Amino acid sequence: MSHAVRSAPVTRQRIIAAVLHIIGQGGVAAVTNRRIAKEAGVSLGSVTYHFSSQHELLRQSLLHFVREETRRFTELADACQQEGIDIEGAAELAGQVAGGTAFDSEHIAPFELYVEAGRDARLREAAAEAFAAYDRLAAQILGGLGVPDAERLAATTVALVMGLQLRRLATGSPAEDLVDALLLLARGALPTT
């Protein structure tokens, strides 16, 4: 196998990381092939070789971020299920994760991309795929906690988390707000005894 073939995935990852960094710093409008090449430390030709269009760059960057976040949160959800964590413990853990998430350029970029999907119908499919992944994960976590009708509540839970994270980003509000909101939602979904 040639060096070029072996290095292609690494180059793609460097380009995607550069795109997320650029978007997080300056928004989608700041993304240019020259800036990507400079940020990623690759040739200008590598950017156009690996990604046929700006749209494809944005789409793949969004999907990459979501895949990584989903993988990380799935591992966390699996660990919680193995430890038999209850709803209060899960909400507290979500608050710790949210509080520990720095709003660096990589974590700001998806918000920019979701807004861009509102303007660019070509990105909506990727955004829908991203939210579907978050919904599946939320349903898995809620179901594991014994919340009835977890699949129906998944999208609401994701919207709550995303909205509160956006609020934290914009205002600096504390992660404890997320814990309180998740507990309110989960307790409201549990059957009364």
Rank of each mutant, 00 (worst) to 15 (best):
H3E: 15
A4L: 11
S7L: 12
P9Q: 14
T11W: 07
H21V: 03
H21N: 14
I22F: 06
G24L: 00
V28R: 12
V28W: 03
A29P: 02
A29F: 04
A30V: 02
A30P: 01
N33L: 04
R35L: 15
K38N: 09
G41T: 10
V42C: 10
S43I: 06
G45Y: 04
S46P: 02
V47R: 01
S52F: 02
E56S: 09
L57V: 11
S61E: 07
H64G: 00
V66Q: 07
E68R: 15
E69D: 15
R72G: 05
F73P: 00
T74H: 15
T74K: 13
A77Y: 08
C80N: 12
I87S: 02
A90Y: 01
A91T: 03
E92I: 01
A94Y: 12
V97H: 05
A98R: 00
G100C: 06
F103C: 00
F103W: 08
A109Q: 02
P110I: 02
P110D: 08
E112H: 04
L113M: 01
E116R: 12
A117S: 13
R119K: 10
R124I: 10
R124Q: 14
E125A: 15
A128I: 14
E129V: 08
A130I: 06
Y134I: 07
R136C: 03
R136N: 02
L137R: 04
L142Q: 08
G146H: 09
P148K: 06
A154Q: 06
A154C: 15
A154Y: 03
A154D: 09
T156I: 11
T157Q: 03
T157E: 02
L160S: 13
M162G: 04
L166A: 14
A170I: 11
L178A: 01
L184V: 09
L185F: 04
L185S: 08
G188H: 00
P191E: 01
T192D: 06
